[in-house]
């Protein structure tokens, strides 16, 4: 169960990273910080109305991703666009963004982890074990979002424009696609997905200014294993990593889980550099 929750949350986060890499060809090292911001903002919004934890959480679920998306749009306009989306320069720039976001949160929010109360608490009792109902909610919400994003990418006009831009930005522009706007939208969408994952996770995990590191590493692992621009690959790899991380952590140790995941990345890079589901290099 633990592993399933991890897998769904990871799938959301990694999907954001993979969209940004796929369409914009940039590696966003600050992606985990968007996750962290989601969690911290969730604490902030629920603390606004402590007497109504359910509505506070609903507010956080809507407002946190919007705030984070806005921050992403600003970062895109101020930093990435000026670097002309050069792959190397943007890696350095997003490392800078990572520290700026982390230190701002440290300054404004402090070094302590803060708990957020789950919006609902009931226990589901199955014959052989019981668990918190909130985890089911997380799984449901994440699954809905994944389906939603998949639908948007494959079935809507925005998705078509996104895929065309991903494939050939020059030609897309020659057919009227405002590439800069698409980039800003994709960067915001990727950030919002990470933020939602952060909000969903915070009742289980507490908000802390350093919590972005783990999701970043795991998302990278997922994206590499799944293939750099494969939506299906990202989701499948998130399940492999999320479930195995949960199971191995539970029965052996979290360190062993990370070692195995890293090994898996190395193996994939050697045997299938394009990822399990990625298209062959063009």
């Amino acid at each position: 169960m633990e592993g399933t929750v991890t897998a769904f949350v990871l799938a959301l986060t990694a999907l954001g990273l993979s969209l940004v890499f796929g369409v914009m060809r940039i590696v966003n090292v600050a992606h985990g910080e968007f996750f962290m911001l989601g969690a911290v903002l969730a604490w902030g919004f629920t603390a606004l109305i402590p007497e109504l934890p359910f509505w506070g959480f609903m507010l956080a679920l809507l407002a946190a991703p919007v705030c984070v998306a806005a921050i992403a749009v600003i970062a895109d306009a101020l930093v990435l666009r000026r670097l002309n989306y050069e792959p190397e320069a943007t890696i350095v720039a997003t490392i800078g963004l990572l520290y700026i976001l982390q230190q701002s949160v440290l300054t404004l929010y402090g070094p302590n982890a803060q708990p957020v109360v789950a919006p609902i608490s009931f226990r589901v009792v199955l014959p052989w074990f019981g668990y918190s109902g909130y985890k089911l909610v997380v799984i449901g919400a994440a699954a809905l979002l994944l389906i939603g994003v998949w639908y948007a990418i494959t079935r809507t006009k925005f998705g078509l424009v996104m895929r065309a831009t991903q494939f050939d930005r020059e030609t897309a522009q020659a057919f009227g696609v405002p590439v800069k706007l698409v980039y800003a939208a994709v960067f915001a969408l990727g950030a919002a997905l990470a933020a939602i994952a952060g909000v969903l996770v915070v009742p289980l995990q507490q908000a802390h200014y350093l919590m972005g590191l783990d999701p970043l590493l795991l998302s990278f692992i997922v994206v590499i294993i799944g293939g750099l621009d494969s939506l299906k690959g990202t989701v499948v790899a998130a399940f492999i990593i999320g479930l195995s991380d949960g199971i191995i952590s539970m029965f052996f140790s979290p360190t062993l889980a990370k070692i195995i995941a890293t090994l898996a990345v190395a193996l994939v890079l050697v045997w299938r550099p394009q990822g399990l589901f990625g298209a062959r290099a063009r």
Binding site: L160, R163, A164, F167, D168, E170, T171
Partner: peptide, 8 residues
């Protein structure tokens, strides 16, 4: 060279 969106 046509530059189609070949994957689409």
């Amino acid at each position: 060279g046509r530059r189609l969106f070949a994957e689409l």
